[in-house]
């Protein structure tokens, strides 16, 4: 099954890029402002029968400040990014994010794995053993 329409999505991203460039040309910056309802962080979701892999782009986010939690079929990712502001006085600006998504099935919170490398978050969750499809043996009467 491939219900995902890449063509349309690329068009939206291209539009976003155009708006981005127009915005910059007029001296404004769109950084951190969602456009076309894009949530932060952007997530891709992959699935097989019993496992889901969720990847997200979180550049500049310290993994130590990132929290991932699972409750039933809801996955929540939250954290913060600290921007160092370079200038006469060194200051910092913090941007927080908190995002919950609904997964296609409830998952086993105890077996959630997450890693973060080079600003890309990868979360792997599994269907609970008890809810895996089972083959039922049929006994002849």
């Amino acid at each position: 099954m491939n219900s995902y329409d890449w063509g349309m999505w690329n068009t939206l991203q291209d539009m976003e890029q155009i708006f981005d460039q127009v915005g910059r040309a007029y001296g404004s910056t769109r950084r951190g402002t969602p456009f076309l309802g894009q949530a932060t962080p952007a997530l891709n979701i992959w699935a097989n029968e019993n496992t889901l892999v969720v990847t997200g782009e979180v550049p500049g986010v310290d993994p130590a400040s990132t929290t991932i939690s699972v409750l039933g079929d809801t996955l929540t990712v939250s954290g913060k990014r600290v921007f160092a502001i370079v200038g006469e006085q060194k200051t910092e600006r913090t941007e927080e994010f908190n995002r919950s998504i609904q997964l296609p099935f409830a998952v086993d919170a105890d077996r959630t794995e997450a890693r973060c490398q080079d600003g890309v978050l990868t979360i792997t969750v599994h269907r609970p053993e008890a809810e895996k499809p089972r083959r039922i043996a049929i006994t002849a009467a």
């Binding site: 999505w9 979701i45 890309v120």
Partner: peptide, 18 residues
């Protein structure tokens, strides 16, 4: 970047292109 593909998995949704 490494392509965001996972063998044996199908993509359910995509919000960014790696």
């Amino acid at each position: 970047v490494h392509p965001d593909t996972h063998e044996g998995f199908r993509q359910l949704s995509g919000e960014y292109r790696a």
